[in-house]
Write a protein that binds this DNA or RNA. Structure first.
Lengths: 155, 155
DNA sequence: ACGAAATCGTTGACAGCTCATCTACTGGCG
DNA sequence: CGCCAGTAGATGAGCTGTCAACGATTTCGT
């Protein structure tokens, strides 16, 4: 045990560093934009987007949490804050006494409908437009591949 | 003005979604690992890594902040927390009365030296090993390209 | 040399995330 | 029925990140 660390070779390290910096810069800029332009946090945006995109803006708490792949505690805090700001509301679930529905309020719909087009523009401007269609689809395939690989890995 | 939103077409959206999910899952797992195995937060790791990698574990505050591309306020809070835990120390700068040096303590060195090999293993396991060398270098090139593109874009 | 502007870094308030713990309800099994 | 395991979700403490404002020093123009 305690084998010598297998450091990354220079090409691997270069690729990793570029990826990390790119991803951090991109996400950082996008979330600051959403925040500045809509007054919503990036998390608010994600929740409303997923809640309203398909369906009727109404979802079981844990279904929503699974959809966006968040821990339930994170979602619970998030919903509390958003409820405080009037973007969503909690509703009791008749079928299951423990359960709760999360519902987008009219203000929530308004917020996401105003924010979404701007957000798409920024995604285009910073990300999509940087690449040829081919590169974009390559990046998509590679991402999917990493994702599939991670699913097979512990933790 | 108020042109109709130009939504992403299905291939674009698929690529974007995969990328986002991949990146979130990957970063999330890596930082939980660092946290669990070394007791350091991902931010602690980044700071110590960059502070000790080249040079003598001693850097001007803003140089360090620029190196890791953080806002100075974030760095300041981070350094305060790390100093409290004994990982780094602040030192006055003789040349510039406003300035400060950040120095890695022996405990800081110990922490990063223990954590780094484990971290590399996780990067390999979750990321590098998912791809062929070709795919990895392609991802590196694409990342770099996005990065360069963003630098030319406002904010 | 002197005042204005720029630079270096800190601080406080507040929103967000994680982890552990807790309550309430359901559902299964004897 | 009655107990017990599992599920749904909330909560509190503590750490992290952001934004705006601030104090201290240096630099630059005149």
């Amino acid at each position: 045990m305690d084998a010598p660390p297998r450091w990354l070779d220079p090409e691997q390290k270069a690729a990793w560093d570029s990826f990390i910096r790119m991803q951090e810069t991109l996400i950082g800029r996008l979330s600051r934009r959403v925040q500045a332009e809509s007054g919503m946090s990036a998390s608010d945006y994600i929740v409303l987007h997923n809640l309203t995109e398909r369906g009727d803006g109404r979802m079981r708490f844990l279904d929503l949490a699974k959809l966006v792949e968040w821990e339930k505690s994170r979602m619970s805090h998030q919903v509390t804050r958003m409820a405080k700001r009037g973007l969503v509301a909690r509703e009791e679930c008749p079928d299951d006494g423990r359960g709760a529905f999360i519902v987008a309020t009219p203000a929530g719909y308004k917020a996401i409908e105003e924010a979404a087009p701007q957000h798409v523009e920024h995604v285009r401007r910073l990300f999509i437009d940087a690449l040829t269609p081919n590169q974009l689809s390559t990046l998509g395939r590679i991402s999917k591949r990493i994702l599939d690989h991670m699913e097979k890995q512990p933790d």
